[in-house]
């Protein structure tokens, strides 16, 4: 009885059954309609948390300014704009490396869920002109973003958060 399971054919049959089951599950997963009533939460991007320094202070402006980091923060599910959410921002700029504390700053979202913080011009570093943004204030799940500028001469960059309640 048990011997039949250990034959090569038996194993193959078992494998085929498993593969079939996996395929069916996978296909079913794809067929589930996108949660239409829900705005999906943003996932963290690869490398988003690199050179993160916790507790960057809320500032009027990072350094001398001249470049704008903008974006929106909404709640997952109903997509409602979130007010007074602290977003931390850092980048390699004309005034410092990503690891320099003075390259970091934070800002709060307005009633409509938007934020904008002036900072020094971002310059290409580690092969791409990019910025970093973080939400990590506990009420929602932590998200780290790493948007890339279309061109190194851009003078603004934006990133949108959809946060999942923690």
């Amino acid at each position: 009885m048990t011997r039949s399971l250990t034959t090569r054919r038996g194993i193959l049959r078992g494998g085929a059954t498993l593969a079939g089951a996996a395929l069916a599950t996978g296909a079913a997963g794809l067929l589930v309609p996108a949660r239409a009533q829900g705005v999906a939460p943003t996932s963290s991007m690869r490398g988003g948390s690199n050179n993160y320094l916790p507790g960057a202070p809320v500032v009027e402006r990072i350094g001398g300014g001249g470049f704008w980091m903008t974006g929106t923060v909404r709640r997952a599910g109903d997509g409602a704009p979130l007010k007074d959410i602290r977003i931390q921002i850092w980048a390699h700029t004309t005034e410092g490396h990503e690891r320099d504390p003075h390259s970091h700053g934070a800002t709060l979202t307005r009633a409509d869920g938007t934020f904008r913080l002036e900072m020094p011009q971002i310059v290409p570093a580690f092969g791409q002109p990019h910025g970093h943004l973080a939400y990590d204030s506990r009420a929602f799940e932590t998200v780290f973003l790493r948007p890339v500028m279309r061109s190194a001469s851009d003078t603004s960059l934006s990133a949108d958060f959809v946060l999942q309640p923690a």
Binding site: G47, N51, H97, F126, G127, R146
Partner: peptide, 23 residues
């Protein structure tokens, strides 16, 4: 030298988890 400049970026590259395709 890159590791001294930004350790996490180099660790990502070495582990093939970097967001940059050239790494």
């Amino acid at each position: 030298g890159l590791w001294l400049t930004s350790p996490p970026d180099v660790v990502d590259a070495l582990l093939f988890t970097s967001p940059t395709p050239f790494s």
